[in-house]
Design a protein around this nucleic acid. Structure first.
Lengths: 206, 206
DNA sequence: AAAAAAATGGGGATTAAGCCTCAGTTAAAT
DNA sequence: ATTTAACTGAGGCTTAATCCCCATTTTTTT
């Protein structure tokens, strides 16, 4: 057990990042806290030798999102414990987070004490039993039940491409695109691409 | 000029709200800082007598959004200076913010010093020349050029209602809905409701 | 009072979306 | 080796969306 804990905060919103940094520094056991505005920047810091005990990573970021960032950290710096932070506390985000190898998940609706609790747990025991972890991660949900091709079609549908354009992009026939769309609609229980876009954007899917 | 400044922070994300609160309290001239998670709660606090010098209000909140909240504050507690905070620093949000009667606009991409600067300006001089204010607020942009009826149609289009449903909702004919839509498309330069939804959601219009 | 902007809605046309069934092929899993 | 899941695509259909044109009435502005 280490008494002083070093932290890295990674979030694209400066106001949040800097505030959280100050807030965390007010806890006695946290001795210092670096910050960066995206995943790439964070990894660069680590390469330069500024390696913390724990990294707090926002999921929605430009350049390199939180999932990718956590994956990279886990492969290059396995000693660093990672905590994902997200505004979207739905099953999809949480599941994807743990699949990326994160050690904990914190919602932006949680309290500072929750995040500090996770930090302490990870620093002292290397593990944190997440309050979000039991949100039935067992049964497949929503986008997770989509096949690779269906996900690709979904992504293009949400970029407002027509069937024709999607067919061109994927080198398949319009009819196949239509079949994929049909499956997506049934699996996600929607009847229009508008619903799909609303779903994807409000849940932070892409 | 008052030496001690009291603040209220209103934001639905607990983690951000509490962090900002701690961060602001670290500035010597800020003596205390209350917080609430939505506009209604904030106004209730004010009614109860907890009236601060300055209110920091997030624009995107449940129950009552930032624009409405600022309007209410300005009508019921005109002495309180308001600063809007937003993740969306586009012309639309900024313009709408000042129309609501806000005294300043702060992007969540700004630094803590920016927000502290705005607070000091407002507390000492009652005015803050915003770095965002000169972002050509003069020429009409995007959604702002829509008529009231067009905005209503836009809102319903983004809720994935069909023309038929919109017509029913607004007590007008489908043909009129179609004409409104036509105008919206031309004004916002889009060709599909999907683009419209993407535009609205990624810019925090609704 | 005159002009401009907003709201209304009809006619009509093309295109895209959505929905269903069926069926062959390929790849993965048991 | 056989079942299962994924990918592929055809035919055909219905409805909704998109995009023109036009005209009238109401409201607002000048």
């Amino acid at each position: 057990m280490i008494n002083t804990i070093s932290i890295a905060v990674c979030d694209d919103h400066t106001l949040f990042r800097k505030s959280l940094q100050i807030a965390l520094n007010s806890f006695s056991r946290i001795n210092y806290c670096i910050d960066s505005s995206n995943g790439q920047e964070l990894l660069d810091e680590f390469e330069r030798g500024a390696v913390p005990c724990i990294a707090l990573v926002d999921l929605k970021m430009p350049v390199m999102d939180g999932y990718q960032t956590i994956k990279c950290i886990k492969s290059k710096f396995p000693a660093i414990k990672t905590i994902a932070m997200s505004s979207f506390d739905n099953e999809f985000s949480i599941k994807k987070t743990f699949k990326s190898g994160a050690d904990a998940f914190i919602s932006k609706n949680d309290n500072l004490e929750d995040i500090y609790g996770a930090i302490i747990d990870l620093a002292d025991n290397g593990i944190h039993i997440n309050k979000w972890a039991n949100i039935n991660l067992s049964n497949d949900i929503l986008i997770d039940c989509l096949t690779p091709k269906e996900k690709e079609v979904l992504k293009l549908l949400c970029r407002d491409l027509s069937y024709h354009q999607i067919a061109d992009e994927m080198y398949i026939s319009i009819k196949t695109v239509d079949r994929h769309r049909d499956e997506i609609f049934k699996k996600l229980k929607v009847q229009s691409r508008t619903s799909l876009v609303i779903f994807a954007l409000t849940n932070g899917i892409f």
